[in-house]
């Protein structure tokens, strides 16, 4: 009896309600537009984790302001000297200066946008997780709208989003809606992202196996990884800028460390090839494998970080296919 009182505080007998009068913000009917979804819950969670300390922003903000002041002084100095040595020269220099300032602002804006998009993905993922845990009904409509709003200008996803909206109905609970987003919108992206990962890991494996020097290896791996990160991120709509992809790389390096890559490269080589084969082939090829596998891990980590809905154990991308792909590399190289 007490149980029952907890679950239904007021007993409501079945009634018929006339006239038809859906409430203004009913679960199924009128949803707020995609832009109204700011994801504050998610944003807060992110800040929580990174332990807020006032001294950090004060320090960096102060340094940044000082640098700005110094630069401004320098610039005005430069300008006055340039104008002193000739009017036309002065004009030219100020034109250059203006161009530099403008380009810097442009880059900063670009970075800001890309960082905002990453934040938004984080917020979406946190929201999806919250909905799945709450296991409720009627709130995932906002989320579906937020996701389709996020991919609004992606014409390649338009059919998927269209089919998402036709298949979601009022009877689906939040988990089901999120599962549908997962399979209908994100699964095709996963597919192409995984193909990019395969390609990149093959590229690095072959290139580093053939490259003559270790220094060149490092350059190749870094460059190809960065390119892969950008490819994968933009597939998921994260669109990282230059700085943004470095940020992503950094986060992923942390991820990789957690994933146990730091254990030792020889271990990875054996994992990639199976002990007996690994022993049989040259170290150079082995290094190629290792680099290929590392690249694949970076790629998969990027997928995990850029996906608006976290992978489930059922659809988490595995390195299995990467391994089989890499096993065919020695044949191609030799």
């Amino acid at each position: 009896m007490s149980d029952r009182n907890h679950s239904a505080p007021v007993w409501q007998a079945p009634v018929e309600l006339e006239p038809l009068r859906p409430a203004p913000d009913g679960g199924g009917g009128n949803r707020p537009g995609p832009d109204e979804f700011a994801g504050p819950a998610g944003a807060e969670k992110v800040r929580d984790i990174s332990r807020w300390n006032w001294a950090v922003p004060a320090f960096f903000g102060g340094v940044f302001a000082l640098v700005l002041v110094v630069l401004a002084f320098d610039a005005s100095d430069l300008l006055s000297r340039a104008f002193a040595s000739g009017y036309a020269f002065g004009l030219g220099v100020s034109g250059l200066l203006a161009l530099v300032v403008f380009a810097a602002l442009w880059l900063a804006l670009d970075e800001a946008i890309s960082i905002r998009r990453l934040r938004r993905i984080d917020a979406l993922r946190a929201e999806a997780e919250r909905l799945v845990i709450a296991d409720g009904h009627g709130s995932a409509g906002h989320f579906a709208d937020a996701v389709s709003g996020f991919y609004r200008d992606r014409s390649d996803l338009a059919p998927a989003i269209e089919s998402l909206h036709t298949s979601v109905n009022d009877a689906h609970n939040d988990r089901e809606v999120i599962a549908l987003i997962d399979r209908q919108v994100l699964a095709p992206i996963d597919q192409s992202a995984y193909n990019s990962v395969l390609r990149a890991s093959r590229d690095t494996a072959v290139a580093t196996a053939l490259s003559p020097s270790a220094a060149l290896d490092v350059v190749i791996v870094l460059w190809r990884n960065l390119k892969l990160v950008r490819e994968v991120a933009s597939l998921y709509g994260a669109r990282p800028g230059r700085f943004g992809s470095w940020r992503l790389m950094r986060r992923m390096l942390a991820n990789l460390a957690v994933a146990g890559v730091a254990e030792g490269l020889s271990h990875v080589a054996v994992e990639a090839l199976g002990g007996s084969i690994a022993a049989a082939i040259s170290t150079k090829l082995g290094q190629g494998m290792v680099n290929g596998l590392l690249t694949a891990r970076v790629g998969v980590a990027t997928m995990v970080l850029c996906r608006p809905v976290a992978f489930t154990p059922a659809n988490r991308p595995s390195l299995g296919r990467v391994r089989t792909e890499l096993l065919s590399v020695p044949k191609d190289v030799l």
Partner: peptide, 20 residues
Amino acid sequence: AAVKCTETVTTEHQGRKLAC
């Protein structure tokens, strides 16, 4: 439900929100 015959709507009844 093999054939879905209803839609779920939220309405207000005596000041309470009801899933109808």
